[in-house]
Deep mutational scan, measured.
Amino acid sequence: KNAAKIVNEALNQGITLFVSDNKLKYKTNRDSIPSELLEEWKQHKQELIDFLTQLES
């Protein structure tokens, strides 16, 4: 999976991924984040940080 797909899947579940101080963060109104999503974010962390940083610049 690529970073764009992961970010879109998160958005579809009401979760916004973003970068703050070079760290991957998220915002959501959900009570909890599915563990498989958290695991996927960890596996692709640097790719996600790079992707989101490019989007914001």
Rank of each mutant, 00 (worst) to 15 (best):
L24C: 02
N29K: 09
W41T: 02
L55T: 12
V19E: 02
R30H: 10
S32Q: 11
E47K: 06
T16L: 13
S57G: 14
E56W: 06
K25D: 07
N22M: 08
L55K: 14
T16M: 11
E47A: 13
K5A: 15
L48I: 15
Q46G: 07
A4R: 06
S20P: 01
F51W: 09
K27T: 11
S20V: 15
L48D: 00
E47C: 06
I33D: 02
K23S: 11
W41E: 00
N2W: 08
T16R: 09
E47P: 05
R30L: 14
I33M: 04
S35R: 12
A3N: 02
D31W: 04
E36R: 09
D50A: 12
D31G: 12
E9L: 05
N2Y: 08
W41D: 00
Q13T: 04
K45N: 13
F51Q: 02
K42N: 13
A10R: 00
K42M: 14
A3K: 01
N29F: 11
V7F: 12
V19R: 02
N22A: 07
L11K: 12
A4K: 09
K25M: 15
S32F: 13
N2E: 13
D50G: 06
A4C: 08
A10M: 04
E40F: 11
V19W: 04
N22H: 09
P34W: 02
N22Y: 06
V19K: 03
S35C: 10
N12P: 01
K27D: 07
K1L: 10
Q54H: 14
V7K: 02
T28W: 03
K1R: 08
A3D: 02
F18V: 05
N29Q: 11
A10E: 00
L17Q: 00
E47G: 06
I33G: 02
K42A: 15
L17E: 01
T28Q: 02
T53D: 05
E36Y: 11
H44L: 05
T53F: 06
K1T: 11
N12C: 08
S35H: 13
T28R: 02
S32C: 09
N12F: 10
Q13R: 08
S57D: 12
L37W: 07
E56K: 06
G14K: 04
Q54F: 09
K45C: 12
D31F: 06
S57F: 13
I33P: 05
A4L: 08
N8K: 14
S32A: 08
R30N: 11
F18H: 05
L48E: 00
Q43W: 07
G14L: 02
E36G: 11
L11C: 07
K42F: 15
L38I: 12
K23N: 10
L48Y: 00
I6H: 02
N29S: 11
K5P: 03
Q43R: 14
D21E: 11
K25Q: 14
F18S: 05
P34G: 04
I49C: 05
A4F: 08
G14P: 00
E40Y: 09
K42Y: 15
N2M: 10
F18T: 04
L17D: 00
